[in-house]
Design a protein around this nucleic acid. Structure first.
Length: 310
DNA sequence: AAGGAAATCAACCGCGAACTA
DNA sequence: GTAGTTCGCGGTTGATTTCCT
């Protein structure tokens, strides 16, 4: 059987919302709360019609008997002719009272960049860390501002000398509204290695016992004769806060790897943890261990090649 | 001032996970 | 266990605004 459409599209309004539609939707949600989006338009329409029926009868009785036909016609048409999905989107992204709009601060921008590095395009998760911001707003902000900052960079003199044609100065057609940043050397190397798995709900996950000891999940410290699953202790994801990870001390990340003293920067460590955490948090089956330990040899070769970026 | 290009962002669409009967 | 339904997410579109020549 084919998938049932989310709504019957015929006769429904599309495009920009009117003030009246907004009001109808807000009135309905004030009374009934959020949810049941599919049935909302019809019910909201009834409430709107009922409210206006009362007003209408008062008006008709007192002032406007001659316009009865016209008013009744308007009453018939009163309703929210919108798809439930559209109602939900409008509420979540625009009408909710706690929404902060525009003027993304420097602090918020920095947080978005850090979270995107950790989570990839998981806009709703990122939005969850920015009170009052919606996933749509952050997604748009990223696509119009931050993605340019992260993907464009000023080439070094060395790079220009090496490939003068590629970096030949060209006059932009239009003054850029966002100035690109010179990224840290490792940024682009790791940019492509952010794990972009599909989001899935996960109520429990697993971390190594070392997590409790040093507050940092280091799967690579597990004995080689043990699978990670053997040594894992389960904890409730609800107890975790991403800011804890950001604020953690990652300085001992590589200490126990065959005395291989590699001093990556804090950002790079966070990103590595991002991969690790991502694997754990979004695996197909959270009751099984789907994560993979970082390939340290590959990591070392990446770090070695960092010179190319300096 | 006009026309076109680029930027912005609200809204739409399809997919898949979660839920329900 | 399964099929149908609902909800939430991320990618994309397109109308509008802004900027440049």
């Amino acid at each position: 059987m084919g998938r049932r459409p989310c709504c019957i599209k015929e006769g429904l309004n599309r495009g920009a919302w009117t003030t009246q539609e907004d009001k109808t939707l807000v009135d309905f949600i004030k009374i009934h709360g959020e949810g049941s989006w599919r049935n909302l338009p019809a019910e909201a329409g009834e409430i709107y019609a009922y409210k206006h029926k009362l007003i209408y009868f008062k008006l008709v009785f007192l002032f406007l008997p001659e316009h009865e036909g016209l008013a009744l016609k308007r009453l018939e048409n009163a309703g929210l002719k919108r798809c439930g999905k559209s109602c939900r989107l409008r509420w979540m992204n625009y009408l909710r009272p706690d929404i902060k709009r525009g003027n993304i601060s420097q602090e918020e921008e920095e947080l978005i960049i850090r979270l995107h590095k950790l989570l990839g395009n998981r806009w709703s998760l990122i939005a969850g860390r920015l009170p009052g911001r919606t996933d749509n707003e952050i997604k748009n902000y990223w696509n119009t501002n931050l993605s340019k900052k992260n993907h464009q960079y000023y080439p070094t003199v060395k790079q220009i000398q090496k490939n003068p044609i590629r970096y030949k100065e060209t006059k932009p057609k239009r003054k850029p509204t966002v100035l690109p940043l010179r990224p840290p050397p490792m940024r682009q190397m790791f940019e492509s290695s952010v794990v972009r798995t599909k989001a899935s709900r996960c109520t429990r996950t697993f971390f190594t016992p070392q997590l409790q000891k040093i507050e940092t999940p280091i799967v690579n410290e597990l004995p080689k004769d043990k699978t990670p699953y053997d040594k894992l202790a389960d904890i409730d994801v609800g107890d975790l806060d991403f800011s804890d990870f950001f604020n953690s001390d990652f300085s001992n990340l590589f200490e126990s790897h065959n005395n291989n003293e590699i001093p990556p920067s804090t950002n790079d460590q966070l990103l590595l943890h991002g991969e690790y955490i991502e694997e754990y948090w979004t695996g197909d089956d959270c009751d099984q261990h789907n994560g993979t330990a970082l390939d340290l040899e590959a990591l070392a070769s990446i770090l070695d090649s960092e010179e190319d970026w300096l």
